[in-house]
Design a protein around this nucleic acid. Structure first.
Length: 415
DNA sequence: TCTGGGGTCCTAGGACCC
DNA sequence: TCTGGGGTCCTAGGACCC
């Protein structure tokens, strides 16, 4: 016996039940392409790369393309085999960002509490908005209609008393779906759920489910908490125990921990030339420094990542007392790490660099010995400003522009 | 079919201190 | 000479998500 949203427990006691919508745009990038190019409508559209792009993967496949078995994260070469007649597109993030902002603005009209999860997803807290928009189902229909009419895109919505279940619910009836878990129905919903739908359980956890004969939430429900912890580890074991009881998981709580930023690059062809690799690192330094200054963050910890031809991956990180000062400083730190880690001569398919434990740069102690650094940083900020205003100017600090040649020509041609 | 790029969180082990 | 037990910080690697 379930209570429905809007029903009250008694005549005198009116209890407000928390109510969250999770909205997910359907095949977002592919849908935007079909919107902007009507000739693509009804065709299998695959965003991620052009045929012949080496080492690309599918970013989004339209529903027409999914019928051929094409899905996200699939290597493009495989998609091409399954769906040679598809429309292949590299994608235009700027345009997708624009559409995303339009939709988020619509969400904001329905609630002040919108939590954007990614470019195409958000939680909307509609607790207590009945007076304005009606019952949750009605609210969801209004929202879906506005998104469709004003942006030409469709969304799928899940509704539940907690975010975790709302998130799973939005995936239950895609595309253009609406799925509601009434208050009190959380546990029943989770117990009936096939384990493949449990959010947070990827390839490795699915293997463990299989190995232990766990097919549904019910099977997990029947296990002791200690048993789950012994199979899945402390954090995920506890998480599963609570999740199948319909309890709110705290994975989507607003206050999130540390932030980081990173840039990485997979080369079209493996590179084993040290100079070329170091040049690639310099190029990523520029990207990172630009973003760091742009969002007014600072960091004391830098990291590098090296993926070799056999896909084995190694990383290294190093913290120092002082935050990264400028481009040169960042490059020197990364280079030191890289030289410590890289075994010369080995072929590299990917190189990455990152800044960890970002904090607000207002807490920066402007050091006594920082005068040279201050000048350097001002210069960098000026260059970044110019690049922002005139994207085609592409000002650089020298060697990094070399890296672009390296990437654009499909690998270094050495004689 | 060889497997992108940008993130977050968890685990386990070592260093160091009291 | 036989090496306890926290707490905290750092590092490497892995799982997972969109």
């Amino acid at each position: 016996m379930c209570l429905h949203y809007g029903q009250t427990l008694g005549i005198k006691v009116k209890k407000t039940v928390p109510c969250f919508m999770h909205s997910d745009l359907d095949a977002f990038y592919a849908s935007v392409e079909q919107l902007d190019h009507p000739e693509y409508k009804g065709k299998p559209v695959i965003v991620g790369g052009h045929p012949g792009d080496r080492r690309s993967v599918v970013s989004t496949a339209s529903y027409e393309a999914r019928k051929f078995g094409v899905h996200s994260a699939m290597p493009l070469t495989e998609a091409l085999k399954l769906c040679p007649q598809g429309v292949y597109i590299r994608g235009n993030m700027k345009r997708y960002q624009e559409k995303s902002e339009e939709i988020m603005a619509i969400f904001a009209d329905f609630s002040p509490e919108v939590q954007q999860l990614s470019i195409d997803e958000a939680f909307i807290d509609i607790t207590g908005t009945e007076g304005l928009f009606g019952l949750p189902e009605e609210t969801a229909r209004k929202l879906k209609n506005r998104v469709r009419d004003e942006t030409g895109l469709t969304i799928s919505i899940g509704i539940a008393t907690n975010k975790y279940i709302a998130k799973i619910a939005s995936g239950m009836s895609k595309p253009d779906g609406l799925f509601i878990i009434p208050p009190g129905g959380e546990e029943a919903f989770m117990r009936a759920l096939p384990v493949s739908k449990i959010w947070g359980a990827g390839v490795k956890s699915q293997e463990l489910f299989r190995k232990h004969g766990l097919k549904t939430g019910e099977d997990i429900f029947r296990l002791e908490e200690e048993t789950l912890v012994s199979i899945f580890g402390k954090a995920f074991g506890n998480f599963l125990y609570r999740a199948v009881r319909g309890e709110s998981a705290h994975v989507f709580d607003d206050e999130r921990g540390s932030h980081s930023m990173s840039a990485e690059r997979t080369f079209p062809y493996d590179i084993s030339d040290g100079f070329a690799l170091e040049t690639a690192i310099l190029d990523m330094c520029e990207t990172l420094m630009w973003r760091l200054l742009d969002c007014r963050w600072q960091s004391r910890t830098v990291s590098i990542k090296i993926r070799y031809e056999d896909f084995s991956t190694e990383g290294a990180q190093e913290s120092s007392e002082n935050p990264v000062r400028d481009l040169n400083d960042l490059y020197e730190r990364l280079l030191r790490l890289f030289r410590k880690k890289y075994r010369p001569g080995r072929a590299v398919r990917l190189i990455g660099a990152g800044l960890l434990n970002l904090e607000n740069s207002s807490v920066r102690q402007t050091g006594l010995f920082d005068e040279g650094g201050e000048k350097e940083r001002r210069l960098e900020e000026a260059i970044l400003e110019i690049n922002k205003k005139f994207p085609d100017a592409a000002l650089h600090r020298g060697r990094a522009s070399l890296a672009e040649d390296l990437f654009d020509r499909g690998g270094p041609k050495r004689s």
